[in-house]
């Protein structure tokens, strides 16, 4: 009996090892730290395609790595001409003369933004990492990893392609809890060097309109804590920011890989209809709580967003 059980166990182990795509999982925390280090410190350039829902946007990217620092230039290849320069704490948008500049300019997100914001420790706690083998991508050999939440509640799934030679992220796909591809960011060409990086960003746009964003601390105010409380807190999420200004509350929550914002404000006049808007993997959902409007924006699936909006209350 003991012998049969032993053989059965051995066969089972062999079968698991032979199934393509299921391999021994590396440590998610160490994996994330290595990915962050390589993606920041290496020099590379290439063309990136960003698919968000039904919208596509192409960028030319030059990334100059450094010890703890990095400098990045991006040029939009579709739509109005714009260039973006980025360091860890400063971002400048430069618009070509005559190009259309929106009155309220959003801070442009980096294509691999969320991937480069990973918190390795939290990621380790909240996600399972599975290696799915190798694939050829943008003319390079890449190792494919799947990040799945350890939580039982619905979450997005993430697949990341990492260049085997440089360890730089080449592609990041985000899928809904039902497996639908929502956002896909990928290099379509990649060179592990700076290549033809423009020497002076303004040289291509004389008389440009530019504006600059800088990182600053959150404006936390006394009494902002614990006024609007989320109970229960969704598995693995930790509050990163809580601030109050002029009677409006803001909270940012993160599970180490994705974030969601909660904004609460008094309703002035007629209560607006609750609404939902989806941009790729990012969802905006609003709810009315008595005299207050609560808005959630973040990379969470709709069922989780509904549950969060039901679980926030005034304490």
């Amino acid at each position: 009996m003991k012998d049969r059980l032993w053989r059965l166990g051995l066969h089972l182990l062999t079968a698991i090892l032979l199934v393509p795509g299921v391999q021994a999982a590396p440590d998610a925390g160490t994996w994330a730290e290595t990915l962050l280090q390589n993606s920041r410190q290496a020099d590379y350039n290439g063309t990136i395609m960003v698919l968000q829902g039904n919208e596509q946007q192409a960028y030319r990217l030059w990334h100059e790595g450094g010890d703890g620092e990095f400098r990045e230039r991006m040029r939009l290849l579709d739509g109005p001409e714009m260039e973006i320069t980025r360091t860890p704490d400063r971002l400048t948008c430069v618009h070509a003369p005559g190009s259309e500049v929106p009155a309220e300019h959003d801070m442009p997100a980096s294509p691999f933004g969320s991937l480069l914001q990973i918190e390795p420790e939290q990621l380790q706690k909240n996600y399972r990492l599975t290696e799915e083998g190798e694939q050829r991508l943008a003319g390079r050999q890449a190792r494919v990893y799947l990040l799945g939440s350890r939580s039982d509640s619905p979450r997005l799934h993430h697949r990341v392609w990492v260049d085997t030679a440089t360890g730089v992220a080449l592609r990041h796909s985000r899928y809904g809890h039902d497996g639908t591809l929502l956002t896909d960011v990928r290099f379509v060409s990649f060179e592990p060097e700076l290549g033809d990086a423009p020497a002076e960003i303004r040289s291509s746009f004389p008389q440009a309109f530019w504006h600059q964003f800088e990182e600053s601390g959150a404006r936390q105010r006394a009494g902002a804590d614990d006024v609007w409380q989320l109970d229960p807190i969704p598995d693995g999420f930790v509050r990163q920011v809580e601030e109050e200004q002029d009677g409006e509350w803001y909270q940012l929550w993160s599970d180490g890989l994705v974030e969601f914002s909660l904004m609460v404000e008094p309703i002035v006049g007629v209560a607006p209809e609750p609404m939902t808007e989806q941009r790729g993997s990012t969802l905006l959902m609003s709810a009315v709580h008595g005299d207050w409007l609560v808005v959630l924006v973040g990379d969470v699936p709709e069922p989780l967003a509904r549950s969060i909006l039901s679980d926030i209350s005034w304490q």
């Binding site: 309220e104 300019h105 801070m107 980096s110 600059q212 964003f213 990182e215 601390g217 959150a218 808005v295």
Partner: peptide
């Protein structure tokens, strides 16, 4: 709301991006 999320969600240190110039 979209802008505000972008302002905070891409900062690792619990801060925010502000247009300064």
């Amino acid at each position: 709301y979209w802008s505000r999320h972008a302002q905070f969600a891409t900062v690792r240190t619990g801060g925010r991006w502000d247009e300064t110039e």
